[in-house]
């Protein structure tokens, strides 16, 4: 890790003021479970680290009927998982936290960090840049791409969005509140993510001197939601693929649906095709199967990751069936 100066502001505004206007100069420190590892690998070398830990009003999980859930960006995964209201109204979020099999990460990792963590693409982490370039060539297509993207991978970005929380929160129509020097803005969570098209661009739309302050999840009454991830190991491991679904039901019929995939594209992948396959249908094994097929209908696997197409199909199917059972 290179040397850096450390700042720990106590207010949101102060934090924003400590951030540089360009990427690379400063980094935000939340739980640190991603950023510190990147710094140890010299993938990130900020001159200043701005810790958000002492900003009290970024913590906590709040619920208000009619308004829904307000999660401070610095709320830890454990805070979310043990929160009574989350347990009662958003059980899929508890399941999501439990997919990350580490009590240590539960107490360290924050929801903001989970959304804004950087990809785990091994070329990126070995220092070949987010777009994994080597001697003018893109590494993933010809290299080892077993864990890379199968959707949205027409290049030059081949990494996958790593967040376990982003897909389910997007499916639940969450919004994020951002604070920058010129004030705050609230955007749908999916708008926080973007696929970079050239070197220097990031996979987030956050500005270098903005912070995520809150995640707002609308009331979930009448929604059936579920997550299903496929992980090779039962212990702490990265998912090979992930699916989150939220179904608005009318009696037994799906009125509207959102199916969001993780670990398959450079952004959380909002699958219109899968949603379309569900709307107006009564849930059944066949319908779930069809949604899974639809989710991967546009997939363009690379040389080594064709299996992820099948896994994704199954993850969607299972998530839908789980949601159908009333959600877990």
């Amino acid at each position: 890790m290179e040397r850096f100066e450390y700042a720990s502001p106590v207010s949101r505004k102060e934090a924003v003021g400590l951030l540089a206007e360009t990427w690379g100069e400063t980094e935000i420190l939340a739980g640190g479970t991603d950023v510190l590892s990147r710094m140890k690998d010299y993938v990130s070398t900020p001159k200043r680290l701005v810790s958000l830990k002492r900003i009290k009003d970024l913590k906590g999980v709040h619920y208000a009927p009619g308004h829904g859930l307000r999660i401070g960006s610095m709320a830890t995964l454990r805070e979310i998982k043990v929160n009574t209201y989350v347990q009662r109204y958003y059980p899929a979020l508890v399941d999501t936290a439990n997919l990350i099999r580490s009590q240590q990460l539960h107490s360290m990792g924050t929801i903001g960090g989970s959304l804004l963590q950087r990809p785990r693409c091994w070329y990126y982490r070995l220092g070949y840049g987010l777009l994994a370039q080597y001697e003018g060539k893109s590494l993933p297509p010809e290299g080892d791409n077993r864990y890379h993207a199968i959707l949205g991978n027409s290049g030059p970005a081949y990494f996958t969005s790593p967040s376990t929380f982003a897909p389910i929160l997007i499916a639940l129509e969450a919004r994020v509140e951002l604070l920058g020097p010129s004030g705050s803005r609230t955007i749908p969570l999916e708008k926080l993510f973007t696929t970079p098209t050239k070197t220097g661009e990031r996979e987030h739309t956050l500005h270098p001197n903005e912070i995520v302050t809150e995640i707002l999840v609308p009331p979930a009454g009448g929604i059936r939601s579920a997550v299903h991830e496929i992980r090779q190991k039962e212990g702490l491991d990265w998912a090979l693929t992930a699916a989150a679904v939220a179904l608005h039901m009318k009696d037994n019929t799906v009125r509207s649906a959102r199916v969001v995939l993780g670990q398959v594209a450079p952004v959380p992948w909002d699958s219109q095709e899968a949603a379309h396959a569900l709307v107006g249908k009564t849930l059944s094994e066949q319908v779930a199967e069809a949604a899974g097929k639809a989710a991967v209908s546009e997939a363009t696997p690379l040389s080594m990751n064709g299996y992820k197409v099948q896994l994704t199909r199954v993850a969607v199917k299972r998530a839908v069936l789980q949601a159908a059972k009333g959600g877990a």
Partner: peptide, 30 residues
């Protein structure tokens, strides 16, 4: 049997998983 493999990259010649995240050891629930 299920997880471990030293993954070498044909283009860069480097080990792609020189860590304990992608060099996967069996863990307790497995």
């Amino acid at each position: 049997s299920l997880f471990e493999e030293k993954i070498m990259d044909n283009i860069t010649g480097r080990m792609l998983n020189p860590n304990m995240e992608f060099y996967k050891l069996c863990s307790l629930p497995d």
